[in-house]
Design a protein around this nucleic acid. Structure first.
Length: 509
RNA sequence: GGUCCGUUCGUCUAGGGGUUAGGACACUAGAUUUUCAUUCUAGCAACACGGGUUCGAUUCCCGUACGGACUACCA
Protein backbone atom coordinates (compact mmCIF):
# COMPACT_ATOMS: atom_id res chain seq x y z
CA UNK A 1 0.00 0.00 0.00
CA UNK A 2 1.28 3.43 -0.82
CA UNK A 3 2.03 5.99 1.83
CA UNK A 4 -1.11 7.38 3.38
CA UNK A 5 -1.33 11.08 2.69
CA UNK A 6 -4.61 12.80 3.42
CA UNK A 7 -5.64 16.37 3.30
CA UNK A 8 -8.11 18.65 4.93
CA UNK A 9 -8.88 21.39 2.46
CA UNK A 10 -11.16 24.06 3.84
CA UNK A 11 -12.13 27.29 2.21
CA UNK A 12 -11.43 30.35 4.35
CA UNK A 13 -14.94 31.72 3.99
CA UNK A 14 -15.85 31.85 7.65
CA UNK A 15 -15.64 29.84 10.83
CA UNK A 16 -15.00 26.13 10.60
CA UNK A 17 -18.29 24.29 10.94
CA UNK A 18 -18.52 21.33 13.31
CA UNK A 19 -19.08 19.09 10.30
CA UNK A 20 -15.79 20.31 8.92
CA UNK A 21 -14.12 19.37 12.17
CA UNK A 22 -15.42 15.84 11.76
CA UNK A 23 -14.13 15.64 8.20
CA UNK A 24 -10.74 16.84 9.41
CA UNK A 25 -10.87 14.32 12.24
CA UNK A 26 -11.55 11.34 9.98
CA UNK A 27 -8.70 12.40 7.74
CA UNK A 28 -6.44 12.79 10.72
CA UNK A 29 -7.39 9.42 12.18
CA UNK A 30 -6.59 7.63 8.95
CA UNK A 31 -3.24 9.39 8.71
CA UNK A 32 -2.34 8.54 12.30
CA UNK A 33 -3.44 4.97 11.98
CA UNK A 34 -1.13 4.36 9.05
CA UNK A 35 1.70 6.64 10.16
CA UNK A 36 0.85 8.82 7.22
CA UNK A 37 0.75 12.54 6.74
CA UNK A 38 -1.99 15.03 7.42
CA UNK A 39 -1.96 17.98 5.07
CA UNK A 40 -3.77 21.26 5.49
CA UNK A 41 -4.49 22.98 2.22
CA UNK A 42 -6.22 26.31 2.07
CA UNK A 43 -8.63 26.49 -0.85
CA UNK A 44 -8.87 30.22 -1.29
CA UNK A 45 -9.65 30.39 -4.97
CA UNK A 46 -12.82 32.39 -4.55
CA UNK A 47 -11.73 35.93 -3.90
CA UNK A 48 -15.29 37.13 -3.41
CA UNK A 49 -15.97 34.87 -0.49
CA UNK A 50 -12.65 35.27 1.24
CA UNK A 51 -13.04 36.21 4.88
CA UNK A 52 -10.04 37.66 6.72
CA UNK A 53 -9.19 35.72 9.83
CA UNK A 54 -10.90 32.55 8.69
CA UNK A 55 -7.65 30.75 7.94
CA UNK A 56 -6.28 31.54 11.38
CA UNK A 57 -9.54 30.42 12.91
CA UNK A 58 -9.38 27.09 11.12
CA UNK A 59 -5.86 26.45 12.34
CA UNK A 60 -6.71 27.46 15.89
CA UNK A 61 -9.76 25.23 15.89
CA UNK A 62 -7.84 22.20 14.64
CA UNK A 63 -5.16 22.82 17.20
CA UNK A 64 -7.67 23.05 19.99
CA UNK A 65 -9.28 19.70 19.21
CA UNK A 66 -5.84 18.12 18.92
CA UNK A 67 -5.60 17.57 15.18
CA UNK A 68 -1.98 18.05 14.24
CA UNK A 69 -0.95 19.14 10.80
CA UNK A 70 2.15 17.66 9.19
CA UNK A 71 2.24 19.83 6.11
CA UNK A 72 0.53 23.13 5.56
CA UNK A 73 0.86 26.84 4.93
CA UNK A 74 2.63 27.47 8.24
CA UNK A 75 5.07 24.60 8.51
CA UNK A 76 5.54 24.08 4.80
CA UNK A 77 6.39 20.68 3.40
CA UNK A 78 7.66 19.03 0.24
CA UNK A 79 4.86 20.34 -1.97
CA UNK A 80 4.70 23.94 -1.01
CA UNK A 81 2.84 26.29 -1.29
CA UNK A 82 -0.25 24.97 0.48
CA UNK A 83 -2.45 27.91 -0.27
CA UNK A 84 -4.17 27.61 -3.64
CA UNK A 85 -4.11 31.30 -4.39
CA UNK A 86 -0.32 30.97 -4.44
CA UNK A 87 -0.37 28.16 -6.98
CA UNK A 88 -1.92 29.94 -9.93
CA UNK A 89 0.84 29.19 -12.42
CA UNK A 90 0.71 25.51 -11.58
CA UNK A 91 -2.96 25.37 -12.52
CA UNK A 92 -2.29 27.42 -15.64
CA UNK A 93 0.25 24.86 -16.75
CA UNK A 94 -2.13 21.93 -16.48
CA UNK A 95 -4.98 23.88 -18.00
CA UNK A 96 -2.74 24.47 -20.98
CA UNK A 97 -2.02 20.76 -21.17
CA UNK A 98 -5.73 20.00 -21.22
CA UNK A 99 -6.21 22.64 -23.89
CA UNK A 100 -3.41 21.19 -26.00
CA UNK A 101 -4.81 17.69 -25.71
CA UNK A 102 -8.24 18.83 -26.76
CA UNK A 103 -9.84 18.09 -23.39
CA UNK A 104 -10.61 21.70 -22.65
CA UNK A 105 -11.63 24.80 -24.55
CA UNK A 106 -12.07 28.54 -24.22
CA UNK A 107 -15.56 29.91 -23.68
CA UNK A 108 -16.58 33.53 -24.05
CA UNK A 109 -20.23 33.43 -23.11
CA UNK A 110 -21.50 36.16 -20.84
CA UNK A 111 -23.54 35.33 -17.77
CA UNK A 112 -26.63 36.65 -19.58
CA UNK A 113 -26.02 34.28 -22.46
CA UNK A 114 -25.56 31.38 -20.09
CA UNK A 115 -28.73 32.21 -18.30
CA UNK A 116 -30.65 32.50 -21.55
CA UNK A 117 -29.41 29.06 -22.58
CA UNK A 118 -30.49 27.52 -19.29
CA UNK A 119 -33.88 29.16 -19.38
CA UNK A 120 -34.46 27.98 -22.90
CA UNK A 121 -33.54 24.40 -21.99
CA UNK A 122 -35.61 24.37 -18.84
CA UNK A 123 -38.77 24.54 -20.88
CA UNK A 124 -37.71 21.59 -23.02
CA UNK A 125 -38.67 18.25 -21.59
CA UNK A 126 -35.82 15.82 -21.09
CA UNK A 127 -33.10 18.37 -21.73
CA UNK A 128 -30.48 19.15 -19.14
CA UNK A 129 -30.19 22.90 -18.78
CA UNK A 130 -26.42 22.79 -18.80
CA UNK A 131 -23.35 23.62 -20.84
CA UNK A 132 -22.46 20.22 -22.23
CA UNK A 133 -21.92 18.18 -25.36
CA UNK A 134 -25.50 18.84 -26.39
CA UNK A 135 -25.33 22.59 -26.10
CA UNK A 136 -21.73 23.70 -26.43
CA UNK A 137 -21.89 23.92 -30.21
CA UNK A 138 -24.53 26.61 -29.85
CA UNK A 139 -22.37 28.71 -27.58
CA UNK A 140 -19.51 31.14 -28.03
CA UNK A 141 -16.35 29.13 -27.54
CA UNK A 142 -13.18 27.96 -29.22
CA UNK A 143 -15.06 24.96 -30.58
CA UNK A 144 -17.55 27.08 -32.50
CA UNK A 145 -15.51 30.17 -33.28
CA UNK A 146 -12.78 30.31 -35.89
CA UNK A 147 -9.26 30.07 -34.50
CA UNK A 148 -8.27 33.59 -35.50
CA UNK A 149 -11.43 35.00 -33.90
CA UNK A 150 -10.58 33.20 -30.69
CA UNK A 151 -7.01 34.45 -30.77
CA UNK A 152 -8.24 37.95 -31.47
CA UNK A 153 -10.62 37.90 -28.52
CA UNK A 154 -7.91 36.66 -26.19
CA UNK A 155 -5.48 39.25 -27.50
CA UNK A 156 -8.04 42.00 -26.94
CA UNK A 157 -8.38 40.96 -23.36
CA UNK A 158 -11.96 39.76 -23.62
CA UNK A 159 -12.90 37.78 -20.54
CA UNK A 160 -13.03 34.03 -20.99
CA UNK A 161 -13.17 30.84 -19.00
CA UNK A 162 -11.72 27.46 -19.78
CA UNK A 163 -14.10 24.55 -19.71
CA UNK A 164 -13.57 20.82 -19.58
CA UNK A 165 -14.75 19.04 -22.71
CA UNK A 166 -16.78 16.23 -21.25
CA UNK A 167 -17.51 13.40 -23.68
CA UNK A 168 -21.09 12.86 -24.81
CA UNK A 169 -22.18 9.54 -23.37
CA UNK A 170 -19.71 7.50 -21.40
CA UNK A 171 -20.10 5.66 -18.17
CA UNK A 172 -17.73 6.97 -15.54
CA UNK A 173 -17.12 4.63 -12.68
CA UNK A 174 -15.92 5.48 -9.24
CA UNK A 175 -15.21 3.12 -6.40
CA UNK A 176 -16.07 4.93 -3.21
CA UNK A 177 -14.64 3.42 -0.03
CA UNK A 178 -17.87 4.07 1.81
CA UNK A 179 -20.51 3.68 -0.87
CA UNK A 180 -19.01 1.15 -3.22
CA UNK A 181 -19.34 1.49 -6.93
CA UNK A 182 -20.93 4.69 -8.17
CA UNK A 183 -21.60 5.04 -11.86
CA UNK A 184 -22.56 8.20 -13.67
CA UNK A 185 -23.13 8.84 -17.34
CA UNK A 186 -21.17 11.76 -18.72
CA UNK A 187 -24.36 13.06 -20.31
CA UNK A 188 -25.25 14.19 -16.80
CA UNK A 189 -22.02 16.07 -16.29
CA UNK A 190 -21.64 19.56 -17.67
CA UNK A 191 -18.57 21.14 -19.17
CA UNK A 192 -17.34 22.46 -15.87
CA UNK A 193 -15.42 25.67 -15.72
CA UNK A 194 -11.82 24.83 -14.87
CA UNK A 195 -10.35 28.28 -15.00
CA UNK A 196 -12.35 31.35 -14.12
CA UNK A 197 -12.10 34.64 -15.96
CA UNK A 198 -10.03 36.09 -13.13
CA UNK A 199 -7.37 33.47 -13.76
CA UNK A 200 -8.20 31.46 -10.65
CA UNK A 201 -8.99 27.78 -10.98
CA UNK A 202 -12.26 26.36 -9.75
CA UNK A 203 -12.36 23.72 -7.05
CA UNK A 204 -12.70 20.98 -9.64
CA UNK A 205 -9.38 21.72 -11.29
CA UNK A 206 -7.40 22.86 -8.28
CA UNK A 207 -8.42 19.90 -6.17
CA UNK A 208 -7.42 17.35 -8.80
CA UNK A 209 -4.13 19.02 -9.62
CA UNK A 210 -3.16 19.52 -6.00
CA UNK A 211 -4.19 16.08 -4.84
CA UNK A 212 -2.09 14.60 -7.60
CA UNK A 213 0.91 16.84 -7.04
CA UNK A 214 0.76 16.45 -3.28
CA UNK A 215 0.51 12.68 -3.68
CA UNK A 216 -2.73 12.42 -1.78
CA UNK A 217 -3.68 8.78 -1.25
CA UNK A 218 -7.22 9.21 0.13
CA UNK A 219 -9.70 11.95 -0.49
CA UNK A 220 -12.04 11.99 2.49
CA UNK A 221 -14.62 14.70 2.13
CA UNK A 222 -18.31 15.47 2.58
CA UNK A 223 -21.07 13.81 0.64
CA UNK A 224 -21.84 17.05 -1.13
CA UNK A 225 -18.92 16.20 -3.41
CA UNK A 226 -20.21 12.84 -4.49
CA UNK A 227 -22.11 14.13 -7.54
CA UNK A 228 -19.02 15.84 -8.90
CA UNK A 229 -16.61 13.02 -8.07
CA UNK A 230 -17.06 11.38 -11.52
CA UNK A 231 -16.06 14.68 -13.05
CA UNK A 232 -12.88 14.58 -11.02
CA UNK A 233 -12.21 11.03 -12.16
CA UNK A 234 -12.59 12.20 -15.72
CA UNK A 235 -10.16 15.01 -15.09
CA UNK A 236 -7.56 12.61 -13.70
CA UNK A 237 -7.94 10.53 -16.85
CA UNK A 238 -7.56 13.50 -19.17
CA UNK A 239 -4.47 14.59 -17.32
CA UNK A 240 -3.04 11.10 -17.63
CA UNK A 241 -3.04 10.48 -13.90
CA UNK A 242 -5.55 7.69 -13.75
CA UNK A 243 -3.15 5.30 -12.11
CA UNK A 244 -2.17 7.71 -9.37
CA UNK A 245 -5.72 8.70 -8.59
CA UNK A 246 -6.47 8.80 -4.86
CA UNK A 247 -9.10 6.60 -3.27
CA UNK A 248 -12.35 8.42 -2.53
CA UNK A 249 -14.47 8.31 0.60
CA UNK A 250 -17.53 10.51 0.76
CA UNK A 251 -18.72 11.09 4.28
CA UNK A 252 -22.39 11.19 5.26
CA UNK A 253 -23.63 14.57 6.35
CA UNK A 254 -24.36 15.88 9.83
CA UNK A 255 -28.09 16.46 10.07
CA UNK A 256 -30.18 18.78 12.20
CA UNK A 257 -31.41 17.20 15.45
CA UNK A 258 -35.08 17.60 14.72
CA UNK A 259 -36.72 17.41 11.36
CA UNK A 260 -34.74 17.00 8.19
CA UNK A 261 -31.86 18.52 6.37
CA UNK A 262 -28.29 19.25 7.13
CA UNK A 263 -27.21 20.91 10.30
CA UNK A 264 -27.00 24.67 10.02
CA UNK A 265 -25.96 27.47 12.31
CA UNK A 266 -29.59 28.51 12.50
CA UNK A 267 -30.64 25.14 13.94
CA UNK A 268 -27.87 25.24 16.48
CA UNK A 269 -28.76 28.76 17.56
CA UNK A 270 -32.40 27.84 17.86
CA UNK A 271 -31.72 24.76 19.96
CA UNK A 272 -29.11 26.52 22.01
CA UNK A 273 -25.89 24.74 21.22
CA UNK A 274 -22.73 25.87 19.42
CA UNK A 275 -21.82 24.91 15.89
CA UNK A 276 -18.31 26.32 15.76
CA UNK A 277 -15.44 24.88 17.79
CA UNK A 278 -14.24 28.27 18.99
CA UNK A 279 -15.80 31.68 19.46
CA UNK A 280 -16.26 33.40 16.13
CA UNK A 281 -17.12 36.99 15.46
CA UNK A 282 -18.55 37.49 12.02
CA UNK A 283 -16.52 40.37 10.57
CA UNK A 284 -19.50 41.52 8.52
CA UNK A 285 -22.19 41.59 11.18
CA UNK A 286 -19.91 41.72 14.19
CA UNK A 287 -22.08 39.04 15.66
CA UNK A 288 -20.42 36.68 18.12
CA UNK A 289 -21.14 32.97 17.86
CA UNK A 290 -20.10 31.10 20.97
CA UNK A 291 -17.86 28.11 20.41
CA UNK A 292 -17.85 24.65 21.93
CA UNK A 293 -14.70 25.55 23.80
CA UNK A 294 -16.13 28.65 25.40
CA UNK A 295 -19.32 26.81 26.20
CA UNK A 296 -17.35 24.39 28.32
CA UNK A 297 -16.92 21.40 26.06
CA UNK A 298 -13.65 19.54 26.50
CA UNK A 299 -11.82 18.92 23.23
CA UNK A 300 -11.42 15.23 23.97
CA UNK A 301 -15.17 14.94 24.59
CA UNK A 302 -16.06 16.77 21.41
CA UNK A 303 -13.70 14.58 19.41
CA UNK A 304 -15.03 11.38 20.90
CA UNK A 305 -18.59 12.46 20.24
CA UNK A 306 -17.85 13.57 16.69
CA UNK A 307 -15.96 10.40 15.85
CA UNK A 308 -19.04 8.38 16.75
CA UNK A 309 -21.30 10.41 14.52
CA UNK A 310 -21.12 8.18 11.50
CA UNK A 311 -18.44 5.77 12.61
CA UNK A 312 -18.10 3.16 15.33
CA UNK A 313 -15.50 0.59 16.21
CA UNK A 314 -17.93 -2.34 16.27
CA UNK A 315 -17.21 -2.99 19.93
CA UNK A 316 -19.07 -1.74 22.96
CA UNK A 317 -16.39 0.65 24.04
CA UNK A 318 -17.60 4.25 23.89
CA UNK A 319 -14.86 6.27 25.51
CA UNK A 320 -11.83 6.70 23.29
CA UNK A 321 -8.82 8.94 23.46
CA UNK A 322 -7.60 10.44 20.23
CA UNK A 323 -4.85 7.80 20.11
CA UNK A 324 -7.33 4.99 20.66
CA UNK A 325 -9.56 6.40 17.95
CA UNK A 326 -6.65 6.48 15.56
CA UNK A 327 -5.76 2.86 16.13
CA UNK A 328 -9.37 1.65 15.97
CA UNK A 329 -10.35 3.76 12.97
CA UNK A 330 -11.30 2.10 9.71
CA UNK A 331 -12.86 3.83 6.74
CA UNK A 332 -14.87 0.71 6.02
CA UNK A 333 -16.74 1.16 9.28
CA UNK A 334 -18.05 4.59 8.39
CA UNK A 335 -21.81 4.54 7.93
CA UNK A 336 -23.64 5.59 4.81
CA UNK A 337 -26.56 7.49 6.28
CA UNK A 338 -26.50 11.01 7.65
CA UNK A 339 -26.32 11.38 11.42
CA UNK A 340 -28.49 13.70 13.44
CA UNK A 341 -26.61 15.89 15.82
CA UNK A 342 -27.68 15.07 19.36
CA UNK A 343 -26.23 17.53 21.81
CA UNK A 344 -27.37 15.45 24.79
CA UNK A 345 -24.92 12.76 23.86
CA UNK A 346 -22.21 15.37 23.54
CA UNK A 347 -23.07 16.52 27.04
CA UNK A 348 -22.79 12.99 28.32
CA UNK A 349 -19.32 12.61 26.80
CA UNK A 350 -18.34 15.91 28.34
CA UNK A 351 -19.50 14.76 31.75
CA UNK A 352 -17.49 11.55 31.41
CA UNK A 353 -14.30 13.37 30.51
CA UNK A 354 -14.77 16.06 33.12
CA UNK A 355 -15.21 13.49 35.84
CA UNK A 356 -12.11 11.71 34.77
CA UNK A 357 -10.10 14.72 35.88
CA UNK A 358 -8.42 14.70 39.27
CA UNK A 359 -9.55 16.78 42.23
CA UNK A 360 -6.45 18.88 41.69
CA UNK A 361 -7.41 19.66 38.13
CA UNK A 362 -11.02 20.39 39.00
CA UNK A 363 -9.83 22.47 41.94
CA UNK A 364 -7.71 24.57 39.62
CA UNK A 365 -10.71 25.21 37.41
CA UNK A 366 -12.67 26.25 40.47
CA UNK A 367 -9.94 28.60 41.66
CA UNK A 368 -9.68 30.26 38.27
CA UNK A 369 -13.44 30.68 37.88
CA UNK A 370 -13.85 32.04 41.40
CA UNK A 371 -11.06 34.49 40.84
CA UNK A 372 -13.08 36.01 37.99
CA UNK A 373 -15.70 36.85 40.56
CA UNK A 374 -13.20 38.24 42.98
CA UNK A 375 -13.20 35.25 45.27
CA UNK A 376 -9.96 33.77 46.53
CA UNK A 377 -9.79 30.09 47.31
CA UNK A 378 -6.78 28.15 48.46
CA UNK A 379 -5.88 24.90 46.76
CA UNK A 380 -6.66 22.58 49.65
CA UNK A 381 -10.17 23.88 49.98
CA UNK A 382 -10.62 23.92 46.21
CA UNK A 383 -9.66 20.26 46.09
CA UNK A 384 -12.11 19.41 48.84
CA UNK A 385 -14.92 21.28 47.12
CA UNK A 386 -14.08 19.68 43.79
CA UNK A 387 -14.18 16.29 45.39
CA UNK A 388 -17.62 16.98 46.87
CA UNK A 389 -18.96 18.29 43.59
CA UNK A 390 -17.35 16.06 41.00
CA UNK A 391 -20.33 13.78 40.47
CA UNK A 392 -22.71 16.59 39.71
CA UNK A 393 -21.00 18.55 36.97
CA UNK A 394 -21.28 18.46 33.20
CA UNK A 395 -19.32 21.59 32.36
CA UNK A 396 -16.27 23.09 34.08
CA UNK A 397 -18.19 26.20 35.00
CA UNK A 398 -20.59 24.07 37.05
CA UNK A 399 -17.94 23.65 39.73
CA UNK A 400 -17.77 27.35 40.51
CA UNK A 401 -21.50 27.75 40.10
CA UNK A 402 -22.21 25.03 42.62
CA UNK A 403 -19.16 25.78 44.73
CA UNK A 404 -19.98 29.42 45.16
CA UNK A 405 -22.20 28.59 48.12
CA UNK A 406 -19.07 27.91 50.13
CA UNK A 407 -18.01 31.50 49.75
CA UNK A 408 -21.18 33.46 49.44
CA UNK A 409 -23.91 33.08 52.05
CA UNK A 410 -27.42 32.93 50.69
CA UNK A 411 -29.34 36.19 50.82
CA UNK A 412 -32.60 34.68 49.67
CA UNK A 413 -34.22 31.29 49.98
CA UNK A 414 -36.08 29.09 47.57
CA UNK A 415 -39.68 29.90 48.39
CA UNK A 416 -41.15 26.60 47.34
CA UNK A 417 -38.85 24.64 49.59
CA UNK A 418 -39.27 27.17 52.37
CA UNK A 419 -43.03 26.90 52.39
CA UNK A 420 -42.85 23.12 52.32
CA UNK A 421 -39.98 22.39 54.68
CA UNK A 422 -39.48 25.41 56.90
CA UNK A 423 -41.92 24.43 59.63
CA UNK A 424 -41.93 24.60 63.40
CA UNK A 425 -39.97 21.39 63.77
CA UNK A 426 -37.31 22.66 61.43
CA UNK A 427 -37.07 25.96 63.25
CA UNK A 428 -36.65 24.21 66.58
CA UNK A 429 -33.91 21.97 65.25
CA UNK A 430 -32.12 24.80 63.45
CA UNK A 431 -32.01 26.91 66.57
CA UNK A 432 -30.75 24.06 68.71
CA UNK A 433 -28.28 23.04 66.08
CA UNK A 434 -26.84 26.51 65.89
CA UNK A 435 -26.34 26.65 69.62
CA UNK A 436 -24.64 23.26 69.65
CA UNK A 437 -22.35 24.18 66.80
CA UNK A 438 -21.39 27.43 68.47
CA UNK A 439 -20.30 25.48 71.51
CA UNK A 440 -18.36 22.84 69.61
CA UNK A 441 -15.81 25.08 67.92
CA UNK A 442 -14.27 23.38 64.89
CA UNK A 443 -16.45 21.30 62.64
CA UNK A 444 -15.59 18.17 60.70
CA UNK A 445 -17.77 15.87 58.67
CA UNK A 446 -17.92 13.54 61.66
CA UNK A 447 -18.63 16.14 64.33
CA UNK A 448 -21.30 17.70 62.14
CA UNK A 449 -22.95 14.31 61.88
CA UNK A 450 -22.68 13.73 65.63
CA UNK A 451 -24.10 17.11 66.54
CA UNK A 452 -26.96 16.69 64.12
CA UNK A 453 -27.78 13.27 65.50
CA UNK A 454 -27.59 14.46 69.08
CA UNK A 455 -29.81 17.46 68.45
CA UNK A 456 -32.48 15.58 66.60
CA UNK A 457 -32.65 12.76 69.10
CA UNK A 458 -32.93 15.17 71.97
CA UNK A 459 -35.85 16.87 70.29
CA UNK A 460 -37.08 13.50 69.04
CA UNK A 461 -37.49 14.73 65.53
CA UNK A 462 -36.37 12.40 62.75
CA UNK A 463 -33.36 13.70 60.87
CA UNK A 464 -34.91 13.06 57.49
CA UNK A 465 -37.62 15.59 58.15
CA UNK A 466 -35.29 18.52 58.60
CA UNK A 467 -32.48 17.81 56.13
CA UNK A 468 -33.97 19.91 53.39
CA UNK A 469 -34.63 22.77 55.76
CA UNK A 470 -31.02 22.60 56.84
CA UNK A 471 -29.83 22.67 53.26
CA UNK A 472 -32.15 25.57 52.59
CA UNK A 473 -30.76 27.51 55.52
CA UNK A 474 -27.18 26.82 54.52
CA UNK A 475 -27.39 27.24 50.75
CA UNK A 476 -30.68 28.91 49.99
CA UNK A 477 -31.54 26.09 47.60
CA UNK A 478 -32.70 22.53 47.51
CA UNK A 479 -29.82 20.63 46.05
CA UNK A 480 -26.10 20.39 46.42
CA UNK A 481 -23.33 18.23 47.78
CA UNK A 482 -23.45 16.07 50.88
CA UNK A 483 -24.56 18.26 53.77
CA UNK A 484 -22.08 17.01 56.36
CA UNK A 485 -19.20 17.64 53.99
CA UNK A 486 -20.70 21.02 53.18
CA UNK A 487 -20.88 21.95 56.87
CA UNK A 488 -17.30 20.91 57.48
CA UNK A 489 -16.19 22.94 54.48
CA UNK A 490 -18.13 25.94 55.69
CA UNK A 491 -16.80 25.74 59.23
CA UNK A 492 -18.62 26.17 62.52
CA UNK A 493 -18.75 29.94 62.56
CA UNK A 494 -20.13 30.23 59.07
CA UNK A 495 -22.70 27.49 59.67
CA UNK A 496 -24.03 29.12 62.79
CA UNK A 497 -24.03 32.54 61.13
CA UNK A 498 -26.04 31.18 58.22
CA UNK A 499 -28.43 29.42 60.55
CA UNK A 500 -28.94 32.64 62.44
CA UNK A 501 -29.60 34.56 59.24
CA UNK A 502 -32.06 31.92 58.02
CA UNK A 503 -33.88 31.96 61.36
CA UNK A 504 -34.13 35.72 61.24
CA UNK A 505 -35.15 35.92 57.61
CA UNK A 506 -37.47 32.99 57.32
CA UNK A 507 -38.66 33.51 60.87
CA UNK A 508 -41.35 31.46 62.43
CA UNK A 509 -44.09 32.32 59.93
C1' G B 1 -37.74 18.62 -12.75
C1' G B 2 -33.09 15.65 -13.58
C1' U B 3 -28.80 12.88 -11.56
C1' C B 4 -26.61 10.57 -7.52
C1' C B 5 -26.80 8.87 -2.43
C1' G B 6 -29.45 7.04 1.65
C1' U B 7 -33.52 4.52 5.19
C1' U B 8 -32.56 -0.82 12.22
C1' C B 9 -35.59 1.80 19.01
C1' G B 10 -37.03 9.32 19.89
C1' U B 11 -31.30 9.82 18.85
C1' C B 12 -26.16 7.54 17.76
C1' U B 13 -25.59 2.69 16.21
C1' A B 14 -24.25 -3.22 16.29
C1' G B 15 -25.85 -7.19 13.53
C1' G B 16 -26.97 -9.92 9.33
C1' G B 17 -30.81 -15.48 5.19
C1' G B 18 -33.23 -19.02 10.81
C1' U B 19 -31.17 -13.99 16.80
C1' U B 20 -35.42 -13.33 22.91
C1' A B 21 -32.62 -8.02 16.79
C1' G B 22 -27.44 -6.23 21.03
C1' G B 23 -25.18 -1.60 23.17
C1' A B 24 -25.10 3.74 24.32
C1' C B 25 -27.74 8.62 25.00
C1' A B 26 -32.53 10.26 26.37
C1' C B 27 -36.95 8.81 28.99
C1' U B 28 -39.74 5.90 33.02
C1' A B 29 -39.77 2.97 37.56
C1' G B 30 -37.36 0.77 41.82
C1' A B 31 -33.01 0.40 45.17
C1' U B 32 -28.99 3.04 47.51
C1' U B 33 -27.72 8.07 48.89
C1' U B 34 -31.61 10.73 55.85
C1' U B 35 -32.17 15.96 50.07
C1' C B 36 -30.48 16.56 44.91
C1' A B 37 -26.87 14.45 41.82
C1' U B 38 -24.06 9.97 41.41
C1' U B 39 -24.28 4.61 41.39
C1' C B 40 -27.05 0.03 40.67
C1' U B 41 -31.29 -2.74 38.79
C1' A B 42 -35.36 -3.02 35.76
C1' G B 43 -38.51 -1.10 31.94
C1' C B 44 -40.11 1.42 27.42
C1' A B 45 -38.73 1.34 22.45
C1' A B 46 -36.65 -0.24 15.93
C1' C B 47 -35.53 -3.50 10.90
C1' A B 48 -40.15 2.62 5.95
C1' C B 49 -43.76 0.07 2.54
C1' G B 50 -44.96 -3.43 -1.57
C1' G B 51 -43.43 -7.22 -4.61
C1' G B 52 -40.08 -11.03 -5.75
C1' U B 53 -35.76 -14.97 -4.77
C1' U B 54 -35.86 -18.72 -0.86
C1' C B 55 -38.12 -24.06 3.07
C1' G B 56 -37.29 -19.27 5.53
C1' A B 57 -36.10 -12.57 4.71
C1' U B 58 -35.00 -7.28 8.76
C1' U B 59 -30.66 -9.17 5.98
C1' C B 60 -30.31 -10.53 -1.27
C1' C B 61 -32.99 -8.31 -5.88
C1' C B 62 -36.68 -4.90 -8.01
C1' G B 63 -40.04 -1.18 -7.30
C1' U B 64 -42.66 2.62 -4.20
C1' A B 65 -42.53 6.18 -0.46
C1' C B 66 -39.80 9.36 2.31
C1' G B 67 -35.28 12.01 3.20
C1' G B 68 -30.74 14.24 1.62
C1' A B 69 -26.92 16.12 -1.65
C1' C B 70 -25.90 18.11 -6.31
C1' U B 71 -27.71 20.65 -10.51
C1' A B 72 -22.65 28.52 -10.32
C1' C B 73 -16.95 31.82 -13.48
C1' C B 74 -18.95 28.74 -4.54
C1' A B 75 -16.36 25.44 -2.30
Amino acid sequence: MREVRVRFAPSPTGALHIGGVRTALYNYLLARKHNGKMILRIEDTDQNRYVPGAEEYIKDALKWVGIEIDEGPDMGGPYTPYRQSERKDIYAKYTQQLLNDGHAYYAFDTSEELEAMRNRLKTQKGANPQYDSATRMEMKNSLTLAEDVVNEKIKNGEPYVIRLKVPAAEEVELNDLIRGKVTVNTSQIDDKVLMKSDGMPTYHLANVVDDYLMKISHVIRGEEWLPSAPLHVLTYKFLGWENEMPAFAHLPLLLKPDGKGKLSKRDADQLGFPIFPLNWTDPKTNELAEGFKERGYLPEALINFLAFLGWNPGTEQELFTLEELASAFEIERIGKAGAKFDIQKANWFNQQYLRAKTDEQLGQILIADLKKEGIDCETGKAKAIASALRERITFPKDIAELGKIFFIAPTSFDEKIASKKWNQEAITVMAALRDEIKKSGSLTTETAQTILEKTTTQLSIPQGKIMQALRLALTGGASGPDLMIAMALLGGDEVSARLTYALETLGEK
